[in-house]
Write a protein that binds this DNA or RNA. Structure first.
Lengths: 123, 123
DNA sequence: CCCTATGTTCAACACTTATTGAACTATCGA
DNA sequence: TCGATAGTTCAATAAGTGTTGAACATAGGG
């Protein structure tokens, strides 16, 4: 447990690793859900993803997403709050994340992404 | 050998499979090289990629790129001419290919992509 | 017709990956 | 302090991946 997990610096983020991260259906769903949460500027914690898989499997995917620089984890008490590293990704790979997210949105059903109905809409 | 290999239809192209394809450094280099060739509207054949890996390994990656709908192979005599399925990809996943290609171009050295010096520039 | 060039297919291998459940750690609240 | 909650870590497993070399298929040129 303990201290804040390791994250790569912006410059250390590699394109193939990011693409590989996003190519897994569960991780793509996690990223998609984080992206929707971005709009209401709050973070999500592990438990918000139980619909996708079991705890330990999620921890495995979270670790991968962190190591590849796709998301960031902030430890707060017994929770881990996660958010996309959008600014870093957009700087490093302009347009990539948005293209992936909008492509995923188009295929939301086929990809079995949780739709926006469980996300609180802002205004 | 024989008849034209199978390719998925446009609608059968899946986002995770495409991302997975592009996440392998050799396949990314192949796609990058095909994209540069696009500009001079000619095709490339297997032998043009020997710098990346051996024959049989390339055939493996070509098969994957074909199965995932990223590129198309046209049989002509003893050669196989290949090109990106840009129109299909752009329709299915708008902006994705370009974002990947320009991100790759930014990191060309790090990714060990062959630079444009071996590609004929069209003015 | 034979020889060569082009590219695929196959079997084998070492390696990585995703998934599971059980054990563990740490924090919070009663 | 005790118990519940949140999440990680570990070991085991099953399946997939990339790489290699050898064998194969096909077409073209002498």
């Amino acid at each position: 447990m303990s201290r804040t997990p390791l994250h790569p610096t912006r410059e250390q983020i590699e394109l193939p690793m990011v693409l590989d991260c996003l190519s897994d259906p569960i991780r793509l769903a996690i990223v998609y859900q984080l992206a929707q949460q971005e709009r209401v500027s709050s973070e999500l914690c592990c438990g918000d993803f139980y619909a996708l898989s079991g705890k330990s499997n999620l921890a495995y995917h979270f670790a991968k997403l962190r190591e590849c620089g796709v998301m960031q984890t902030r430890v707060a008490g017994t929770n881990r709050f996660m958010r996309l590293r959008r600014e870093d990704l957009d700087t490093r790979f302009p347009g990539l994340l948005d293209a992936v997210l909008s492509s995923a949105a188009k295929d939301a059903e086929r990809l079995q992404l949780l739709s926006e109905c469980d996300v609180v809409e802002a205004d």
